[in-house]
């Protein structure tokens, strides 16, 4: 993993097809916005604004003046160190630094005891101390809507994953079109779009023709995904449970209605969205350092 300062070229690529409004004038150090204010300032495409307005503060103070922004999918210790080294105190990430959701106030005693044990564990302890010592402000970006009803994935993540694979939008926000390709070609396209290696798994005949692709980044909600998957030939997903849609798709061939699966892993499936967000923030806040920390596939195979 390396720190990737955004070039103008990557900004253009990341924001392809999005009309960006004129950026705000650069702010002097004394006029630095607070983290909380920054999330709602600057003109951004609606899909980006929606994600920022739904971001949850999980570490630090939202009142802290922002010195620079680090956007990442996973706020790993490597990413946090890069943020500090490049003068960024605001971290915007799709995942959380302590590998979980914060303990709810009404957690049962067993969960509380388990959490206490983990907070005393050296890796948890050192990471929490690093965040506190450097007064980092970390917001978690939502990947799906919190509104009631079937979980809807936020278009920032769905659309950018689909675009990175060369798919085109349909009226159904989950199902995308492709010029007729084989499943094997789609797998290769997905692989190069997100940089997947050992983490990629697939189901289906590589020669199977594909026209409709259901794109579900992050985790895969069973009921909602099933509804949309019926309209598609293939599911491109991040993380899946192996007793839900995995056997459903594996059964599809024996059922005479073959469907394909391309499982990318959660992190890589979220990354086109976080990358695009970083590019748009760079444009919206030209006076600020905005860095993006790309992740390589966490998995390898032999």
């Amino acid at each position: 993993m390396h720190n990737e300062p955004l070039s103008r070229r990557s900004v253009m690529a990341g924001g392809a097809g999005i009309a960006l409004a004129a950026p705000l004038p650069a702010l002097a150090a004394t006029e630095r916005l607070s983290a909380a204010a920054l999330l709602t300032t600057g003109t951004l495409p609606a899909e980006m604004a929606r994600v920022l307005s739904g971001a949850t503060l999980i570490h630090g103070s939202g009142d802290a003046p922002v010195t620079g922004i680090m956007v990442a999918t996973v706020p790993s210790l490597a990413v946090l160190r890069q943020a500090v080294a490049s003068g960024c105190n605001l971290i915007l990430s799709a995942e959380a630094p302590l590998y979980s959701r914060p303990l709810p106030a009404d957690a049962n005693p067993m969960a509380k005891a388990g959490a206490e044990r983990l907070f005393a564990e050296p890796v948890f302890k050192q990471k929490a101390a690093f965040i506190a010592d450097h007064k980092l402000v970390i917001y978690r970006l939502p990947t799906r809507s919190e509104e009631p009803g079937p979980a809807a994935y936020l278009p920032l993540f769905t659309n950018h994953l689909a675009r990175a694979m060369g798919l085109s939008q349909t009226a159904d926000g989950w199902v995308f079109d492709t010029a007729s390709v084989t499943l094997g070609t789609l797998v290769q396209r997905a692989q190069s779009a997100v940089g997947a290696h050992g983490g990629l798994r697939m189901i289906g005949d590589p020669a199977m023709p594909v026209r409709k692709v259901c794109v579900v980044p992050a985790t895969t909600d069973l009921a909602a995904t099933l509804t949309h998957l019926r309209q598609a030939d293939v599911l491109v997903a991040g993380d899946l449970r192996e007793w839900e849609l995995v056997p459903y798709i594996a059964d599809s061939r024996a059922a005479g209605h073959p469907k394909g699966l391309v499982a990318l892993g959660r992190i890589l499936s979220e990354q086109p969205g976080t990358r695009a967000l970083a590019a748009a923030l760079k444009v919206a806040h030209p006076g600020l350092t905005v860095n993006f920390a790309p992740h390589t596939d966490p998995f390898w195979r032999i």
Binding site: R101, P102, A111, T219, G265, R266
Partner: peptide
């Protein structure tokens, strides 16, 4: 199999991300 990402509530956590940080810290 194990859920990827940080959606679990403690004491369940993303073991992959934990293992990577642990490795960076010399363990």
């Amino acid at each position: 199999e194990s859920a990827e990402g940080a959606d679990s509530h403690l004491p369940t956590y993303d073991a992959t991300a934990f293992a990577q940080d642990s490795t960076l810290l010399g363990r």
